[in-house]
Amino acid sequence: MGITYIAMNETIAPLNKNAVRRAMQMALNRQQLLTVVYGGRGFVKDGIFPHGLYGHNPDLPAIPYDPEAARKLLEEAGYPNGF
Rank of each mutant, 00 (worst) to 15 (best):
F43R: 14
Q31Y: 04
P14V: 06
L73D: 06
G52C: 13
G55C: 12
Q31S: 09
Q31N: 05
R21N: 13
Q25E: 15
Y5R: 05
E75C: 04
P80R: 00
V37A: 14
P80M: 00
G42Q: 08
N18C: 03
G52T: 02
R41T: 14
P61Y: 01
L60C: 10
M24N: 11
H56D: 07
A77L: 02
G39V: 13
H56C: 12
G47S: 11
G2L: 04
G2V: 08
R22F: 03
A69D: 02
M26E: 07
A13N: 03
I48N: 06
I12T: 11
V20E: 09
G55T: 04
G78M: 00
P61F: 02
E76V: 02
F49Q: 13
G42E: 08
R21Q: 11
V44N: 04
D59I: 00
G2N: 06
V36L: 12
D59A: 12
L53H: 07
T11R: 05
A69Q: 08
L34V: 10
Q31K: 06
L73F: 09
L60Y: 11
F49L: 04
G55V: 10
R22D: 15
A19M: 07
L28H: 04
R41N: 14
N16P: 13
V36S: 15
I63Q: 04
I6W: 08
Q31E: 02
N9L: 00
Y38L: 15
G55M: 09
L15R: 11
M24T: 07
N57V: 07
R21S: 12
D66N: 15
L60K: 13
N16L: 13
D66V: 10
E76L: 02
V20K: 01
Y79Q: 03
A70L: 04
P14L: 05
I48A: 13
N29E: 01
A27L: 09
P67R: 06
M26H: 03
G52H: 07
G40H: 15
K17S: 12
R22P: 04
N9K: 02
G2H: 07
V36T: 15
V44F: 13
M26S: 02
Y54T: 09
D46M: 03
A7Q: 09
I48V: 14
V44C: 11
Q31P: 02
Q32C: 01
G52S: 12
I12F: 14
